[in-house]
Design a protein around this nucleic acid. Structure first.
Length: 417
RNA sequence: GUGAGUGUAGCUCAAGGGUAGAGUAUCGGUCUGUGGAACCGAAUGUUGGGGGUUCAAAUCCCCUCACUCACCCCA
């Protein structure tokens, strides 16, 4: 039989790595509840149309990276490549815009994109993120960015930088895109083939190209900032002022573009120097048209998503100390019943306990106890069984006592405090 | 989707056409009432898979799969 491995781009998370994940998730929940975000869990697959309409048909994600399949009834479903569209869908469907206040959600969970795996990039990966609805004040944008940045800071991430930009709205962006296209056409010869195609499909993306020719040409193109309409310009100014008030260090990158079509006005991104090519660890922005475009009321939204693998890649989360494990060693099968009764007491009292059923010689059992980092080894030998006692060896202090079995819990309780 | 590198024991890696090896981990013993050490011993492989060249392939060639890194894109 040939072995079956995990599908490409997926991986198993096992102990001890899993403890870092648990700690990270715990800290996300604690941190974001400070801002009154409430957790939301949406399905891991949705109707494909949700992502096509939400993220944008022309985006790379929708065109090339979706895990789309047909179910037995012929519906086209897609494993979620991101969670914003789902949250919006859930809010519309559940009538949450009227039922819940404040309209603040956070999520943690797996996302799926059919990419070629490399460092920090997987086909099943995990994101956490937040979404806020209805509030349109630029100060809220600043708060959301603060909530993104401060969390990473509190985790102890070093070498991260925050960039913000305004990508305009449906009022001012089309006019700017026309200007940009004209400028790009004038410099066509200097652009790579890829970028020449982008002129018509997605001119903003030319700013992302790393080819020297394209970079040089793009540097001469005008940015959106002078083309922002009054509303967007004022909003952007308000966001920057808010960031200053919240004391968030940022740089304005007028050429920053995001990969999803639904962003309006504020867009932001946090990158790390330590991740190789996949250096984006968090990205987000405002999406004032998305709710309406997905059939909901005309309500604004803003949010971000962060990649948990990338976060953990350069985060040394110290694994929590193992709890005080009790290892129960029996010298022979005769004392096993005593050991089982003691183990049951320990479990019921909340002590982690491991019972070695092998009745191998004590030397071996002590070795096993040592290797699982037990705090105590409880020995039930023929002598202890005969007298109703148990020997307890403190594996760290290397001290050993023998006490009546009934006093075990009491002894441990004392030891704990 | 494109490109490069790497696949040999659970793990880290040797052997570059001529009998597949070491370290480590595992298990057993020295040592059936006491762990971390030492010594001795044992087990473990379709050399990722398939095809080809050859008297002979882990080794050379082709295909395929996986991993790693980069491009693309993104978290």
């Amino acid at each position: 039989m040939n072995r079956i491995n995990a599908p490409r781009g997926t991986r198993d998370i096992v102990y001890p790595e899993i403890t870092a994940w648990q700690i990270l998730e715990e800290r996300i929940r604690e941190f974001y509840s400070r801002f009154l975000y409430r957790e939301i869990r949406t399905p891991m697959f949705e109707h494909s149309e949700l992502f096509q309409r939400g993220i944008g048909d022309a985006t790379e994600v929708v065109q090339k990276e979706m895990y789309t399949f047909e179910d037995k009834a012929g519906r086209s479903l897609t494993l979620r490549p991101e969670n914003t569209a789902s949250v919006v869908r859930a809010a519309i469907e559940g009538g949450l815009f009227d039922a819940v206040f404040p309209l603040r959600f956070f999520y943690i969970g797996p996302m799926f994109r059919y990419d070629k795996p490399q460092k920090g990039r997987f086909r099943q990966f995990h994101q956490f993120g937040v979404e806020v609805f209805r509030e349109e004040n630029p100060e809220l944008d600043a708060e959301v960015v603060y909530a993104a940045y401060a969390f990473l800071e509190e985790l102890g991430l070093k070498e991260i930088s925050l960039e913000v930009n305004s990508v305009g709205c449906e009022e001012c962006r089309p006019a700017y895109l026309k200007v940009l296209q004209q400028e790009a056409r004038a410099h066509q010869q200097e652009l790579c083939l890829d970028c020449r195609r982008k002129i018509d499909t997605n001119p903003l993306r030319i700013f992302d190209c790393k080819q020297p020719g394209c970079r040089a040409a793009a540097a001469t193109f005008s940015t959106i900032t002078p083309h922002l309409c009054r509303g967007c310009a004022d909003h952007f100014a308000g966001v920057r002022a808010g960031l200053d008030t919240y004391a968030v260090p940022y740089t304005v990158n007028e050429r920053m573009v995001r990969g999803l079509d639904y962003y309006t006005r504020t867009a932001f991104e946090i990158t790390s120097d330590r991740l190789g090519a996949q250096n984006a660890i968090l990205g987000g922005g405002r999406y004032n048209r998305l709710v309406r475009d997905l059939g909901g009321p005309d309500i604004a939204g803003i949010g971000f998503a962060a990649g948990m693998e990338r976060l953990l890649l350069h985060l040394e989360i110290a694994p929590g100390k193992d709890p005080q494990i009790c290892f129960l060693a029996c010298q022979s099968a005769d004392s096993r019943a005593d050991a089982m009764k003691l183990a049951r007491q320990l479990w019921r009292a909340g002590y982690p306990a491991y019972l070695d059923y092998s009745a191998a010689n004590l030397k071996k059992q002590f070795r096993r106890s040592d290797r699982m980092n037990a705090a105590f080894t409880l020995v039930l030998g023929t002598e202890e069984s005969a007298s109703g006692e148990v020997s307890i060896k403190d594996m760290v202090r290397q001290e050993q006592v023998r006490i009546p079995q009934q006093e075990l819990l009491q002894w441990l309780d004392q030891r704990k405090s």
